[in-house]
Design a protein around this nucleic acid. Structure first.
Length: 751
DNA sequence: GGTTTGAAACTTTTT
DNA sequence: GTTTCAAACC
């Protein structure tokens, strides 16, 4: 096998296959390349059965990319290598063995929303005043406990004496009991329960230890205590554990990432070999020098210094604008200019910021300038209300034990079942120790339920008939049936607002995700689909083949690279955040922010632009921020542009920057970007530009035809517009007036 | 039982 | 400035 493409430390890392290995891989130092070569080397040179190899990452996107590259290199047998995320690894193991812990193997996975709903219920039951003690606080306490592998019993023991902690322990215990009752796990449980399973069932652990003789972990600096324990258990027998990480890129402390997992790796595994990868293949020397000089201000890190033979490259552009609006404007114009001059495509550009809230201004600006863009993060597609409603139907049909899902949809659409009746059902269910859904089926038996039973019946009948349908029909047919029977889309159509329209488009998108799941899976099942959906992150949807500018937080950007990067909102108080500056352990918090800055700078391959605004609206109030301290840590000879800092923002006149002068000239001779029709349709949440699903099959009717609609009756087709992935049909109904609707859902019939 | 209105929170990052 | 949630009203 040819290892000549690798540099010396890379080759060393590939060839060190036995025993623990820590690869300290600086940003852009080719770690994925090392991992893929290492995998191929194990199989081809050492004759290791691919079945015994496992590679673990954090996101599906990273896993997918590694899978692809391994497949390319290894060829035969590569499909039996486990290349997955922590969470899906655990789900796969738990689906097989979780019955040993008293759960059903068809458990559901709760997202943040579900957790909050559940927590609300619990606080109510325990009579906790949520004005003083926030649900969020309890959830974060519980999450941290689970990250540290502390169960409710242990938590209670540790809480002894402390009134507040005892209350938290009560909530934790109750929360956990309720999850179990609903046969549900939250995200943290996936890891926690797998560790528990291994600790209580030596035979299960042993079988997985035998299977995974060679384990590789990517982004090791982001692992928390529970994930560390999981890996430790699996690797304990053969000790062939290779972890790759960069302590300078540890940015998930708030999520429980334990930086000591990497800093103390040699203590955990005494005979560990450590290899540093410091040659960077991504960026120019100027960008690396900037990154190095910023991160050098952190103490207690593993000393590393990135270098490259890519050459110095451009200086880093620094631009300070008067307001956040002008900042967005500047970035939009800069991108438009670079694209127009042919220097970059949209796809080459990324705008990175500290908080999701900053995305809005850029979005508005980009729409105005006709720049195609995609926002990563913010509200997850599957967390949208309409999607969660439909998912709750599917969950109820799949697994009646998820009370939360049933309660979510019992009145969607409105069935006139009131809170009082639902409370009676709940009480009855608790008394008889049955699921909420089971209790609904016995509605007649519930004392004092009265007329409500008659309203509950049709709902139960509907779910039962759908259950029967789910047995043999496809998921997409099932979903279609749900949408039709509940009138979900019809109701939105009737609403006619932009928001309703965008929800319909989301449902449309959801439907195509169902179809693509069915097409891409050997044996599609409803449970399988729900599981896949529960574990997707927003970043996973990023598509390398489309031409758009990507907007995202610095956190989401880790692991990605772009030729032309903008770091926006570099102001003290925003980045580093106000919280980190004022925190008790401010020094540590600032270090974490600095690592984030390091991640941001090192995303750039060729050109980096840093911007800041003197004035910015935060929560409806104008705030003045100084240029971020991180910018000042970059040697000025690397920067093009001055840091201008008046002592008092209110008194001194604003300096007119070169850019602003240029812009004034620019404005007097407006350049039109809008001569062509916009090639994109921004949707409120999933802003995607490619219309992946081609405009559906030809329509059976045309303008002027008479058509019939399920709900609105008969009417005349006034217009048909091909939009995005569907036709928008305007119909003048005899009784219901003029409506616009999408052809694929309206189910219009020519008459 | 459903709708409307006003207050309050939110903005640090998320698998 | 926006969104979410509860109380008051119909």
């Amino acid at each position: 096998m040819n290892l000549e493409m690798l540099n010396t430390p890379q080759r060393e890392a590939v060839e060190h296959t036995e025993g623990p290995l820590l690869i300290l891989a600086g940003a852009g130092s080719g770690k994925t390349r090392v991992l893929t070569h290492r995998t191929a080397y194990l199989i081809e040179e050492l004759g290791v059965n691919p079945y015994h190899i496992m590679a673990i990452t954090f996101t599906n996107k990273a896993a997918g990319e590694m899978r692809e590259r391994i497949d390319d290199m290894v060829g035969y047998g590569s499909e039996s290598i486990w290349v997955t995320t922590f969470h899906s690894t655990c789900v796969r193991i738990l689906r097989r063995y979780i019955d040993r812990l008293g759960y059903g193997t068809n458990f559901t996975i709760y997202d943040a929303d579900d957790q909050k709903t559940l927590m609300k219920e619990i606080c109510k039951r325990l009579e906790i005043d949520t004005k003083i003690y926030k649900e969020k606080m309890f959830l974060s306490v519980i999450s941290s406990a689970k990250d540290e592998l502390i169960d409710p019993i242990e938590f209670t023991t540790r809480a002894a004496g402390d009134y507040n902690k005892r209350r938290q322990a009560d909530v934790y215990r109750e929360y956990q009991a309720e999850l179990k009752k609903n046969n549900a796990l939250d995200f943290d449980d996936l890891i926690f329960k797998t560790v528990e399973l291994f600790k209580l069932n030596k035979d299960v652990l042993d079988s997985y230890q035998e299977r995974f003789r060679y384990i590789m972990v990517d982004e090791y600096q982001d692992t928390n205590t529970a994930q560390f324990e999981l890996i430790r258990l699996l690797a304990m027998k053969y000790k062939n554990l290779c972890v790759v990480g960069d302590d300078d890129q540890s940015i998930y402390k708030f999520r429980g990432a334990n930086i000591y997992n990497i800093l103390n790796f040699e203590k955990h595994f005494p005979d560990a070999k450590v290899i540093k990868l410091e040659q960077n293949y991504r960026s120019t020397q100027n960008i690396l020098d900037a990154a190095n000089s910023v991160i050098a201000n952190n103490v207690g890190r593993k000393e590393k210094s990135l270098w490259t033979d890519n050459g110095r490259g451009d200086k880093i552009t620094f631009e300070q604008l008067d307001s956040a609006y002008e900042e967005a404007d500047y970035v939009a114009r800069d991108i438009a200019g670079k694209v127009r001059r042919g220097e970059y495509t949209y796809h080459d550009c990324a705008v990175l910021y500290r908080t999701n809230a900053q995305s809005r201004l850029f979005e508005e600006r980009f729409i105005n300038s006709n720049i195609p863009y995609k926002i990563v993060g913010g509200v997850n597609f599957y967390a949208r209300r309409e999607i969660k409603d439909l998912l709750a139907y599917l969950k109820t049909i799949d697994n009646g034990r998820d009370d939360l899902a049933v309660k979510r949809i019992i009145n969607v659409p409105k069935r006139g079942i009131g809170a009082a009746s639902l409370a009676k059902v709940s009480d009855y269910a608790a008394e008889k120790e049955m699921d909420f859904y089971q209790a609904l089926r016995w509605a007649d038996e519930i004392p004092g339920i009265g007329r409500a039973a008659a309203k509950i019946k049709p709902f139960v009948l509907f779910i039962q008939s759908m259950k029967a349908r789910a047995e043999n029909g496809s998921i997409s047919e099932l979903l279609q049936k749900i949408i039709e029977e509940t009138g979900y889309v019809a109701e939105l159509e009737a609403e006619g607002t932009d928001e309703a329209q965008s929800r319909i488009e989301n449902i449309d998108e959801f439907m195509s995700k169902v179809v693509s799941y069915e097409e891409g899976t050997d044996e599609p099942t409803l449970s399988g689909f729900l599981e896949e959906v529960a574990l997707v992150a927003d970043i996973d949807g990023l598509d390398d083949n489309s031409d758009y500018v990507v907007l995202m937080t610095l956190h989401s950007a880790k692991g990605l690279e772009f030729p032309n990067v903008y770091l926006a909102g570099m102001e003290d108080g925003l980045f580093p955040s106000y919280m980190s500056i004022t925190a008790d352990n401010s020094d540590q918090e600032i270090e974490e922010e600095r690592r984030l800055a390091y991640v941001g700078i090192t995303r750039a391959k060729e050109h980096l632009t840093i911007t800041s605004a003197r004035m910015r609206m935060v929560r409806g109030q104008t705030q003045y921020g100084a240029v971020s301290r991180f910018v000042k840590e970059i040697p000025s000879e690397l920067l093009k542009g001055e840091i201008y800092e008046p002592k008092n923002y209110h008194d001194e006149p604003m300096q007119e920057s070169t850019y602003q002068k240029a812009r004034k000239a620019f404005r007097s001779t407006p350049v039109s970007y809008g001569s062509r029709t916009p090639q994109y349709t921004p949707v409120t949440n999933q802003r995607s530009f490619e219309s992946s699903n081609t405009t559906g099959a030809a329509l059976s009717y045309q303008v002027g035809d008479r058509v019939r609609h399920m709900k609105f009756g008969d009417g005349e087709v006034k217009a048909i517009v091909a939009g995005g992935r569907d036709y928008e049909v305007t119909v003048d109904f005899d009784k219901a007036g003029t409506k616009k609707m999408f052809s694929s859902f309206a189910k219009l019939k020519k008459i």
